[in-house]
Amino acid sequence: MSGPGEGGSAGVLLIDDDPAIRALLRQTLSHAGYGVSEAGSAAQALAERAARAPDLALLDLGLPDRDGLEILPQLVAAGVAVVVLSARDATAEKVAALDLGASDYVTKPFDPEEILARVRTALRHRARLAGGPGGQAVLRFADVEIDLAARQVRKGGAEVHLAPKEYAFLAELAGNPGRVVTHAQLLRTIWGPGHETDVEYLRVAARGIRRKLESDRPPGQSALRNEPGIGYRLDLTRG
């Protein structure tokens, strides 16, 4: 999936204070065809952003001069898709980054394949936000089709009736395929402001969706994946 040339002309800015990690990421990304630039500090990152206008930034939050969360909004405002590099135990930090407009996150230590997958997803998301091609009217995983235009969900060709909130939940994830959407974002969009902490609504809706669409799947193979403490992700590679 990560053959040379997939990146096209997209530019990626690596922001991490560790040169070894930057070298590894540069290797992975340039091999996949991305144009790579590097920054070892927040100040350098902002300078590189201005000089090269990258499409995406891989941002480590522990920078020597400033907290990565401080420069994240500036990058997002400049139209850069941001994928955050963060430690496994930094759940709150990840949620904060996503709430500040980060497109996604990758947990350290990362798998280069996972980095590429997240970068691809984030770039597609950015293209959709810009109104370009990439928005799909019909999304497919396994034998399930989500027809966003017709507001229909089909399994094996037959329409499946989802409850309104279940559909809204699935549609929200389908609108961000492969990308994590935080619990609070989902709850705000679907149930409205004031429901950001009613996580149990999501649990119940997710169960309903799985029961109706994935009852024939082996246990543990749901495409509707929960990231503990963070949010949900529709994993189209599952199936």
Partner: peptide
């Protein structure tokens, strides 16, 4: 531990996976 141990480990593991 969080930084000095994990940073090289990230590189090692990332390289091995690549």
């Amino acid at each position: 531990i969080g930084h000095d141990l994990r940073t090289p480990l990230t590189t090692v593991l990332g390289t091995l996976r690549a």
